[in-house]
Write a protein that binds this DNA or RNA. Structure first.
Lengths: 209, 209, 209, 209
DNA sequence: CATGAATGAGCTTTCATTCAT
DNA sequence: AATGAATGAAAGCTCATTCAT
């Protein structure tokens, strides 16, 4: 079996194992066994557990970014592009739960070499989304005062909301994934839309009109 | 030194260590050393790593829920209550980053006994927020089409968004609790407000009116 | 509570624990807890695990030897005395299974200081039995050529047979302890060969012809 | 060194150590050191202390049963077969004192998983002896009143006696296997009463009248 | 008469990693 | 292209034992 193919198998097994067990609890033994090869071969190809984990993060990052950017429909209105991007994002993460767990949970949970790698991916996505939101804002209204950091925060909130809804839909009988997605989009879009229209919520107690 | 005091020290050290290193990477040796006692004493008081971790989750859960519910201002309008709750939430998580890491990252990452414990805390928050949204809807005129299940979904989304934002704010230097709360409140409230006013987002491509 | 009483309680618990768990597996914690006192008190009274174990062996040895010698009927024929001694032995060991386990199993299993202690007890019993058998032989026939070592071997065999029969009677439905005792006595007294020739041993006192 | 060979060495060392120190007191470190390998290798091959102990019990059981049954002389009179079986039994236990200690003392002393394993061996021996006694009864004229249950009881007693004698012979310097076998055979065959009347069982093959 | 607080040492077990073939 | 054999290091946990009160 050619090396490239073997490496792919190894990384598949590694993503599965890291995603399900966590970085520390995953053992090189288990990964090698899943592929059906001996441990020294894993070391020959991937060098060490740290490098293997890093390689997994990189591969899954690239796959996710590719899935989202591939969904772009150049020329479409920005909100349409945001929608298709969101759909691509949620589709991809739903189809690759272990990969998403590696990126979102494990990479951030296990110290510097790995967290930095995951941050790079997030930044790529945030930059992409920032572009879309900026375009939307430019199309729709005057100058929006949404700083990059605001966008990053909104992206975090969006992903957190999406994950919570996905888990909730999984656990609650009678709630479909589509319904959850619609809830999210309604929530997010009416919110985002007004944000870009310059609306803000104000605390009537603290800062009474 | 009295036992109660020692136990508190131990749990402080445990939260710190679990939050920073993760459950698996944290070692009982390190925890004991931080307290300045021997490992057997930790076992004598807290029984096992699993029980210690569970105790940490429970303590931090209770503290967080207490912080949020203590921020309630009975009789205030629902949006005001949501705002103070969010501020309390983000303040507490910012002041206890390791505790929050234990709850949000570690507890959910390491399998059933622990995840269930964290879920209880989340459900308490969701229930609280559900109540607030329901109250808002009742207060607001003309919000007839928000079913109970919609409210539940929105609460899930809101809590999920808050959780993700809190983790992100903890990781990102220079993001204050109030800022995070404002970002979310802006996002959520303008969204919620329009939802309750009957607005919906629709995909003009897929389902053009 | 007076010291003597407390010590008795402690040794009761120790015999129970050593007999059931074995010397190594028994923990001073468990023994102290059974008595309802703190560990330091056990150490204050009994000094160490080794000494406690030794004390148990000694106490149980003395009790067993006392039970057997107390069953003597001075002046009765020697085989009658042997029979009553056997009955006393088996009665006592059946009533004190943990004590017997300490003597027979644990003491011999755990190295020199303890094995020697148990051997002393055995030698006392063997000397007693040797005396009886010698007397029987003198009464009944010419000079028996049963050396001390033969007697010791027979005693071992007898005890082994008795234990096996007791366990068998316990496990096999429909076999009573008395039946097992009779089987043993028949076996021991007349031998297999004679059993098959129709001979039986009978207690001339209990059931005189 | 090939794995099979290493495993044999490890089990040899384990039998030695378990037999001499007892299950609890034996340490995996000591076993590994005796073989001259590192502890992880012992775990790699034998999995755990419990499994290693179980494997020892099984191996020694099989060896003992094989030794006894291999001593059978088909067609010989039953008492002769009993004799050769006993000699084989005492010879084997004398040559493998640690193995016998594992079976007779340690396995029965340390709770269910192990005791059951030792019971299987004992049952094989009991079945073998039951067959012999039954055959003897059938050969002998006029032994009409030995019910099946009597035979079973006698076999239990005989095996129990043999086991106890073997342990004793192992502990007592200067007692040979043949001597032990003769002691038991005399006892078993003619009974105590006849022993004292000067009767002896004689091997009609070895020393024909 | 009695205990709460504390520990040094040791145990079983696991894991990432290497070397000779 | 691949593996069987092997290990140093560390982790979770337990236990007999002591001291100050």
């Amino acid at each position: 079996m050619p090396r490239a193919e073997r490496e792919r198998q190894m990384m598949d097994a590694a993503v599965r194992t890291f995603g399900q067990r966590g970085y520390r609890a995953a053992s090189m033994d288990e990964i090698a066994e899943q592929v059906g090869v001996s441990k020294p071969l894993v070391y020959l190809y991937l060098n060490s557990k740290e490098e293997l984990f890093t390689a997994c993060i990189r591969r899954e990052s690239a796959a996710l970014v590719a899935a989202v950017t591939a969904a772009a429909e150049p020329g479409a209105p920005a909100d349409r592009q945001l929608w298709t991007g969101l759909v691509a994002f949620f589709t991809h993460t739903a189809e690759n739960p272990d990969g998403w767990a590696v990126l979102h949970r494990q990479a951030r949970t296990h110290g510097q070499p790995f967290a930095a790698e995951a941050t790079r991916m997030r930044e790529a996505l945030v930059a992409y989304v920032t572009g879309l939101i900026g375009a939307t804002a430019r199309e729709a209204h005057g100058a929006p005062d949404l700083a990059d950091r605001d966008v990053a925060g909104l992206a975090q909130a969006l992903v957190g909301a999406a994950e919570a809804l996905a888990a909730w839909a999984n656990e609650t009988p009678g709630v479909s994934a589509k319904e959850a997605a619609a809830t999210l989009m309604n929530f997010a879009w009416t919110g985002l839309g007004n944000l870009m229209a310059g609306e803000r919520w104000t605390d009537r107690e603290t800062a009474p009109r």
